[in-house]
Amino acid sequence: MNRGLVVFGFPRSGTTLVRRLIDAHPRFACPPETGVFAGAARMLQTERIDGGVRVGIEAGLGLIGVPSSDVRARVADLAMGFLADHAASQGKPRWAEKHPYDVFHREAITGMLGDRVRYLIVVRHGLDVALSCRDLVQVTGRYLDGLGDAIRRDPRPLHAMAASWSDTTVDLLAWAKRHSEAVPVVRYEDLVADPLAVVRAAFSVLGEDVDDGLVDRALATTGAVGLGDWRTWSRATVDATSAGKHRTLAPDLVAELGVLAGPGLEAAGYDRPGPPRELSPEAALRRHQLAMMWQARKA
């Protein structure tokens, strides 16, 4: 019963807010992003060389007779041990961990932890996520590790992130359906609209009650910021205005991004934007000219 909880969510999906809420629960300790599972997943990474020769810790220890299942279990014990120790230091029986890189290592992490832990998924509208990821890049000057492949496939940041979000979300939600135990899925838009109700619903799946004061306690917490969404920590209230920000984008851009994010939006129960409109080259040129005229008049 006293098992840990791993939070999966694409970066910029509201996972830091979820972490604050979980940590405010009297039975859960959810520290700032420790990275223990992403680190453990990297430790278990296997390369294939020379026609399929496996190189990595599992293959290497296999040469001295250690089964892969033992390797994964012992690495999991190591990672979970840190979090269990932290929970104990906080006087809490259960721990939780969220890290933005975990979703990119989800296969390795779920393969390593299996049903030794519970899982929770946070989903936010893919176009809002793409916009927020772009903001993060502007602040940090670089892409998160897991987004490198997406950017190599499509150099347009919003398009790349919308596509990556969609692939990840489809895969994650499909895995959640297959998983042997129920995985609560928290939609960011529902969470900011009614935090207590959404947290209560998620925790009930995990077999835990939630008291009326949990949200207020979570938002009053200012210590142990660690890593995570810098904006969340500056707020003492849940900010619902960040839901639906993609509506500030040009409709044609929203339509383009909607095509890329479409499968993920459908899987997560969001409306898909309408298809891009087909304009003749002349009509497209005239729209461009009108936009320039309007910009010039505003300047």
Binding site: T248, A250, P251, R286, R287, L290, A291, W294
Partner: peptide, 10 residues
């Protein structure tokens, strides 16, 4: 918003 302005002009 401004995007709708372009639609209106069209």
């Amino acid at each position: 918003d401004s995007f709708r302005m372009i639609d209106l002009m069209t």
